[in-house]
Design a protein around this nucleic acid. Structure first.
Length: 853
RNA sequence: GCCGGCGUGGCGGAAUUGGCAGACGCGCUGGACUCAAAAUCCAGUGAUCGCAAGAUCGUGUGGGUUCGAUCCCCUCCGCCGGCACCA
């Protein structure tokens, strides 16, 4: 007999319960207005980041967050709330397309297979999703509305007066295409030849593509952009009210990168050209204007052509060409030392009227601020390096408060050598100088953001087509009734390499009408995940992206964010979480949504490492497959181990031994209530009896109710499980087991291990009355503080902070009583010897510390 | 370089308005059961010294505050994550 006997028959009852849940649809949550909806209950929307269904199937990292949310979903149902707990598929993406390129198989086929695999795996873990709400971003019924939302964005503009998005019809200007929230622009983009597509800034890491690690180069291309920068201020400030980890908020704030300062206009000296051209710079340190001894423009700056002199022209042209050829990677690597070229032109420092040389250098970026800076070498590290390289003058204008040298001092101090603001502290000097400039019409207060507009088009097949057609070189939106725009079948999905999208090959499909042709780009993978949480509220609605009542109910509530808890990985801290907030705010502004934010509370689960403490990867051979774990130890053990490993948010290594330990715990729970008869069948333990628990048992049961409840609320699942282990250990050798105590244990354990607890609950019900037959109908227990109260406490006695003895004393005994009892202890007397007591510190119910020498 | 997080037994981790460090689990050691093994149950398990009672040391390093510090402050070291010429 090779098959090792299971320590308890999970292999029989786990599939049984999963089938029953499926058949009875117990975890289906009706919407308001539907049959079975109970308006008396409050809502709880708990969401997982939906996965990309890859061919590799689920790995143990996915179910970590999913188990956490499942525990809370089941817990909240038992607390009597209407719980929305859905799952779906973020299924547009590169692997399916690349597989299609190789095999010719349509990506939809691959996707369908992978989804089936993922779904089967998730069901095997016993998650309580409402599968009637399943969504798939590649389903035309879904992406119809993704395209619809794009049209809303396209047909809106951001009104700075009202600080929100409005329909484009309210725009008073005469060229609405200039202000649309979705627009076309010739912009320097991140072109990735390896992937055959452009990428968003967020998708480029160290000059390489986030996916695949191919080199990325800057190249001007005509692309769709979303005006996310209009929302920079709100995206940053409205983070304040959200219950997110501070670290993630900071990551987003840094990405948005707000900085306050001033814009200052420098006149061009000896300008041979007609018209008073000026060069505008942005600075966060207007107080250092007197120290500006030169100026630098980005090589691509449009004014360079106007100011460069005859004899400097060859050098400038050469430098520009070299800069253009550099990839982002090279530009980063070469950032160590400064390069640049003098243009031959000069500008006038508006503070002191001095003539300062204008340079170009690639350390000044076209995309940030105005693409031009004033060089203040004394008080900026980069400017100092540049000035030293090219021997430009250095003028100190800030006096440090300490004894550091003024040159190279970048902190705040006192203004010097600056007639208008001398003696002022930096903060006041900034304000004073900005006002002074404003008065003379050559400067004003300004705010800048690092955030760029979102490059929203991709040269791919497997993505949402844009609901846009082109006619006479102009873009135009399709009508709502023309949605969804479904991509054509193709024989060859390969990108052309030139930047032409694969859709260019579908010559029939392209032709929209006699005169108009379709947009050939597709949307990036982020599009579908920007709003899937809304679709979950009402996934089958064909009239609207989400029904109004469903949206109000599930996405409503007293807080700014509608979703009560969102769990997922940190890798989405600035991508998905920023994009989704942006779309949400646009839809909110246009009146389609109840709340300005989507995700009220966010929790990031930590990465699970392999047993070797390394990141799991195929090449290392340390990947753990959930199916194998479930085969051996069952779904309940798998779930409990995932939670018992350590704090949810922490990175931690997998351990098969650890799984065994948790499986042993569940087996002990099983054997607590079941025994094996001589025929080898499990039957109810004769130790179970309908008697009240004794005092000690009652105390531990209520201590466990308290601890497990609190720990679920704070997502401290590991310590909740420990406490239940303590309880089981305490009952393991009891001659008689009170049924009520066992029932409480089963309810507490149910969210963690739903199968074994359902099975045992049912077995108990067959022999003992007085409880619902199904554990899902049971309410969550409440602990009784009176039962936890102690009459006696142990008092620790220390001498000079070292524990020397302990004694028991009545609860809330007076300080005097504790003092004298402690001093009378023989061990204490011995230790004190001839020492003189200088002081006695008493902490009631805890400690007596005798200070002596 | 800048920003953020973390550092506790052989291992995963627990403990915080500053009050018995090491809960729970793994591993290990011994015992019970067994012809034997597995499984299960019981006991022990931070280090050093000691037959023992017990003593001393101990939460990355060094210092400080305090009757008392894993917890608060300062210094340094290490690891992880993010940003990276952002003017």
């Amino acid at each position: 007999m090779n098959e090792r006997r299971k320590p308890y028959p999970f292999d029989q009852f786990e599939p049984k319960w999963q089938r029953r849940w499926d058949e009875s649809q117990v975890f289906h949550t009706p919407n308001p207005g539907e049959g079975g909806f109970d308006p008396a209950r409050s809502k709880f929307y708990i969401l997982d980041m939906f996965p990309y269904p890859s061919g590799a199937g689920l790995h143990v990292g996915h179910p970590e967050g999913y188990t956490a949310t499942d525990i809370i979903a089941r817990y909240q149902r038992m607390r009597g709330r209407n719980v929305l707990h859905p799952m779906g598929w973020d299924a547009f993406g590169l692997p399916a397309e690349q597989y299609a390129i190789k095999s010719g198989q349509h990506p939809a086929v691959t996707t369908r297979e992978n989804v089936a695999k993922f779904k089967a795996q998730l069901k095997r873990i016993g998650f309580s999703y409402d599968w009637q709400r399943e969504v798939n971003t590649t389903d035309p019924h879904y992406y119809k509305w993704t395209q619809w939302i794009f049209l809303k964005i396209y047909n809106s503009w951001f009104n700075p007066e009202t600080n929100k998005a409005e329909p484009i019809s309210t725009y008073p200007g005469n060229n609405p295409d200039e202000v649309r929230l979705a627009y076309v622009a010739d912009v320097p983009v991140n072109w990735c030849a390896g992937l055959g597509t452009v990428l968003a800034n967020e998708e480029v890491i160290d000059g390489k593509s986030e996916i695949g690690g191919f080199p990325v180069v800057r190249r001007p291309m005509r692309q769709w952009m979303l005006r996310i920068t209009a929302y920079a201020e709100r995206l940053a400030s409205e983070l304040d009210e959200l219950d997110w980890p501070e670290g993630i908020k900071l990551l987003q704030r840094n990405w948005i990168g707000k900085s306050e300062g001033a814009e200052i206009d420098f006149e061009i000296a000896d300008c041979a050209l007609s018209g008073p051209e000026k060069i505008r710079v942005f600075t966060t340190r207007p107080d250092t204007l007197y120290g500006a001894t030169y100026m630098v423009l980005a090589p691509e700056h449009s004014l360079v052509d106007l100011i460069v002199t005859e004899e400097q022209w060859p050098a400038v042209r050469d430098y520009r060409e070299r800069t253009a050829r550099k990839s982002d990677l090279e530009r980063t690597e070469l950032s160590k030392h400064k390069t640049g070229v003098f243009t031959g032109g000069f500008a006038i420092n508006p503070a002191n009227g001095e003539k300062i040389p204008i340079w170009i250098a690639d350390y000044v970026l076209l995309g940030y601020g105005t693409g031009a800076i004033m060089g203040v070498p004394a008080h900026d590290a980069r400017d100092l390096e540049f000035a030293r390289t090219f021997e430009l003058p250095i003028v100190e204008v800030v006096q440090p408060q300490g004894d550091e040298p003024a040159i190279g001092f970048v902190g705040e101090g006192v203004a010097i050598n600056s007639p208008v603001i001398n003696g002022l502290k930096s903060a006041d000097a900034k304000k004073a100088l900005t006002e002074w400039l404003e008065g003379r019409g050559c400067g004003k207060q300004a705010i800048n953001y690092k955030l760029r507009d979102w490059l929203f088009s991709r040269q791919r097949y497997w993505g949402e087509p844009f609901p846009i057609v082109w006619e006479n070189g102009k873009h135009r939106a399709l009508e709502e009734r023309e949605l969804p725009v479904v991509p054509p079948e193709l024989a060859d999905y390969k990108p052309s390499g030139s930047g032409d999208p694969p859709l260019a090959k579908a010559t029939d499909w392209i032709r929209y009408s006699e005169k108009a042709t379709r947009e050939l780009n597709t949307m990036p993978q982020w599009a579908g995940s920007c709003w899937y949480y809304l679709r979950f509220c009402d996934p089958k609605n064909d009239e609207r992206f989400v029904g109004e009542e469903a949206e109000r109910y599930w996405m409503g509530g007293p807080k700014p964010g509608g979703i009560d808890l969102y769990v997922g990985g940190t890798e989405h801290a600035v991508l998905h979480l920023l994009y989704a907030r942006f779309w949400h705010k646009v839809l909110f502004d246009l009146g389609y949504l109840s709340k300005p934010e989507p995700f009220q509370r966010l929790v990031n689960q930590g990465i699970i490492l392999g047993e070797d403490n390394q990141k799991m990867s195929k090449s290392r051979g340390n990947v753990v497959n959930p199916d194998d774990v479930i085969d051996q130890h069952g779904a309940d053990a798998f779930r409990c181990y995932e939670m018992f490993m350590g704090p949810l948010e922490q990175m931690k290594p997998w351990s098969m031994r650890g799984v065994e330990g948790v499986a042993r715990f569940l087996a002990r729970v099983w054997r607590l209530m079941m025994t094996e008869n001589q025929a080898g069948n499990w039957e109810l333990s004769p130790r179970l009896q309908e008697i009240p628990p004794d005092k000690a048992q009652q105390k531990i049961v209520h201590a466990t109710i308290k601890k497990v409840t609190e720990d679920i609320e704070t997502l401290s699942f590991n310590t909740a499980i420990s406490q239940m282990m303590v309880l089981v250990n305490a009952f393991t050798n009891a001659p008689v087991l009170p049924v009520t105590a066992m029932r409480t244990l089963l309810v507490l354990l149910n969210p963690f291990a739903p199968h074994i607890t359902s099975e045992l609950w049912e077995k108990l019900g067959e022999n003992f009355q007085g409880a619902p037959l199904n554990i899902t109908e049971v309410g969550w227990p409440q602990h009784d503080d009176a039962l936890l109260a102690q009459q006696e406490v142990e008092i620790v006695v220390q001498i000079n902070g070292k524990v020397r003895d302990k004694f028991r004393a009545a609860m809330d005994a007076s300080e005097e009583t504790l003092k004298s009892s402690a001093r009378l202890l023989p061990k204490i007397q011995e230790h004190l010897g001839g020492k003189e007591i200088r002081k006695i510190v008493v902490v009631p119910n805890k400690i007596v510390n005798i200070v002596a020498n």
